[in-house]
Amino acid sequence: MDAIAQSTRTARAVLAAHAIDKAYRRGAWPVRRVVPVLSGVSFSLQAGEIVGLVGENGSGKSTLMKILVGALAPDAGEVERVARLGYCPQVPQLYERLTCDEHFELFGHAYGIDARQERDARRALYESLGFGRYAGTRVGQLSGGTVAKLNLGLALLADPDVLLLDEPYAGFDWDTYLRFWNLVAERRATGRSVLIISHFVADEERFDRILDLRDGRVVPR
Results as ranks from 00 to 15, higher is better:
A28N: 06
P89G: 13
G27K: 06
Q6G: 02
L38H: 05
R119V: 00
G145T: 11
F131G: 05
H109Y: 00
S7Q: 13
R188I: 03
S62A: 13
F180V: 13
S128M: 09
R206N: 06
L72C: 11
E56D: 13
R138I: 03
G112R: 09
A17E: 05
R122A: 12
H199F: 09
R97L: 12
L213S: 06
A3D: 11
L178K: 14
A16C: 11
R84K: 14
G132R: 04
C100T: 06
G216A: 08
K61Y: 03
V162T: 07
T63Y: 08
L106M: 13
N182H: 14
A83H: 06
H103W: 09
S198C: 03
L211F: 10
R81I: 14
D159W: 00
M1H: 05
A121V: 00
A83D: 11
L85P: 04
C100D: 07
D215P: 01
R84A: 15
S7Y: 10
Q6R: 13
N182P: 06
A3H: 10
R116G: 10
V31E: 14
D208Q: 02
A110H: 05
G27P: 06
F207K: 11
F107M: 10
D208V: 01
E167V: 07
G27S: 03
P36A: 04
V35C: 11
Q6E: 10
V184Y: 00
F180Y: 14
L106V: 08
A47L: 03
G70W: 02
V51K: 03
T176C: 15
T190L: 15
H103G: 07
R9G: 02
I113Y: 10
T137P: 00
S143R: 00
A124L: 10
G140C: 13
G112T: 04
A73E: 13
V34E: 15
G48Y: 08
P92C: 11
V31H: 15
I67W: 00
G144D: 11
L195M: 10
L163D: 03
Y111F: 12
N57D: 08
A71F: 12
V219S: 10
D2K: 00
A148W: 01
G108E: 04
T146R: 00
R217E: 09
L15T: 05
V218L: 13
G171H: 09
R122F: 00
K61I: 02
Q117Y: 02
R206K: 13
A124P: 02
W181L: 05
L211W: 07
A71P: 03
G191D: 06
R192G: 14
V82S: 15
